[in-house]
Nucleic acid binder design. Structure first.
Length: 251
DNA sequence: AACGCGGCCTGGCTGC
DNA sequence: TGCAGCCAGGCCGCGT
């Protein structure tokens, strides 16, 4: 059980504080005891007695309980507890976000169905894909559609289910949809089992590297042979995101 | 509704 | 070897 005594900001990266000013958030959370820590989509949420303190790590954010001196410039916030311990928000790129909200409305608006939750069934996916007319890759990246998939995992899902990333969601072939559904579950479950994907500096826990990278089938394999058909994997930009795919078997 | 662009940051890699 | 330029796992606000 931890009671917050203060939220300090050590650098002047105000964009990191997305809902209020740093001092504003600090005032709102001071004296509150953390009831529960949980995840929704890519947000980590601390349920307080009154309201919610939330974090988004983006690519390089970390929540750590100890820091080294040389890390100090990357510490954008420090949550100080009444027992004199601290939780640090460390982030090389300062893309991560910290915010406070009175209710969960913000999160329910921004974050769609949990792909590993009960509501995400095959008929649900099929119906939702039909409703829209968007390129499948940007759609899968849209956190309000399905939460949790990022650029790497979307490319992997589309490769596994043999779908061209620019296929319109309502034009997917009948046989591709169950394959897509299955691939979303498989990719996420495997990635979680292997603690994620470290390309450059993603870390989990206390500085560990994720091991999913060695099982990537297309991501970052431009110019290399497709594991299914040996055609060269291509890299293109779709929705301004680097996208790897096989033109021959994903069509 | 859907899409494209620019911006936010820093570190690591690539190519000259 | 040194260094400029490019690129990155995410997301938002704006314009069309």
């Amino acid at each position: 059980e931890k009671t917050i005594s203060n939220l300090l900001h050590h650098n002047d990266y105000l964009n990191v504080f997305s809902s209020h000013s740093p001092n504003g958030i600090s005032r709102l959370v001071q004296g509150q005891t953390i009831q529960k820590i949980w995840r929704r989509g890519k947000f980590i949420v601390f349920t307080l007695e009154l309201g919610y303190l939330y974090f988004h790590l983006r690519m390089t954010g970390q929540l750590v309980i100890s820091i080294k001196d040389q890390d100090y410039k990357y510490i954008t916030a420090e949550l100080v507890f009444s027992d004199k311990t601290s939780l640090y928000f460390k982030d090389y790129r300062k893309f991560g976000r910290i915010g406070y909200a009175q209710t969960l409305n913000f999160i329910n608006q921004m974050v769609g169905v949990e792909p590993l939750g009960r509501r995400f069934t095959f008929p649900y996916l099929q119906k939702e894909l039909k409703k829209r007319k968007r390129q499948i890759k940007p759609l899968l990246l849209d956190q309000s559609f399905i939460c949790g998939l990022g650029n790497i995992y979307v490319d992997e899902c589309l490769w596994l289910s043999c779908i061209h990333p620019q296929t319109l969601s309502n034009k997917l072939q009948i046989k591709n949809v169950p394959e897509l559904y299955r691939s979303i579950l498989t990719v996420l479950q495997e990635a979680i089992r292997l603690n994620g994907t470290t390309i450059i500096n993603f870390k989990y826990g206390d500085n560990n590297r994720g091991n999913f990278k060695q099982f990537l089938n297309v991501y970052a394999r431009a110019g290399l042979p497709c594991f299914r058909c040996s055609n060269k994997i291509e890299k293109v930009f779709i929705g301004q995101r680097g996208t790897y795919f096989c033109r021959v078997c994903q069509n």
